[in-house]
């Protein structure tokens, strides 16, 4: 059983890794929920899996090769999908200081 302090620390690391903004209060709530979730998972840990390989591909492996050709799409459609558009460019927030 993982103790509460360890859960809180591990949760903090996970939040920093996935980079989702949560408030202190939400993090406390998530910590309690994660503890419940891990308890809920306990029966799974007791299963003897010694003779089982892990599945790596969910539904059979058949390779499908596609034509190596770029499809640029229609500019009008591409503009519809963009959050913002400035003349011929996607507009995104500046990320280089």
């Amino acid at each position: 059983m993982i103790i509460i302090k360890e859960i809180q620390e591990a949760l903090g690391k996970a939040i920093r890794a996935i980079k989702i903004e949560v408030t202190t209060r939400e993090q406390e709530q998530l910590s309690g929920e994660l503890s419940c979730f891990l308890q809920w998972l306990e029966p799974l840990l007791a299963v003897d899996t010694a003779d089982a390989d892990q599945i790596l591909i969910s539904h059979g492996a058949v390779n499908v090769l596609r034509e190596d050709k770029a499809h640029s799409g229609d500019l009008v459609d591409l503009k519809k999908a963009a959050p913002n558009f400035d003349e011929d460019f996607y507009q995104v927030p500046p990320i280089i200081e």
Partner: peptide, 17 residues
């Protein structure tokens, strides 16, 4: 994450089998 991958995720993949 490290330390939980084997305990939970790998175990789940084996149970899947």
């Amino acid at each position: 994450s490290q330390g939980n991958y084997d305990r939970y995720y790998r175990q789940a993949l084996k149970i899947w089998t």
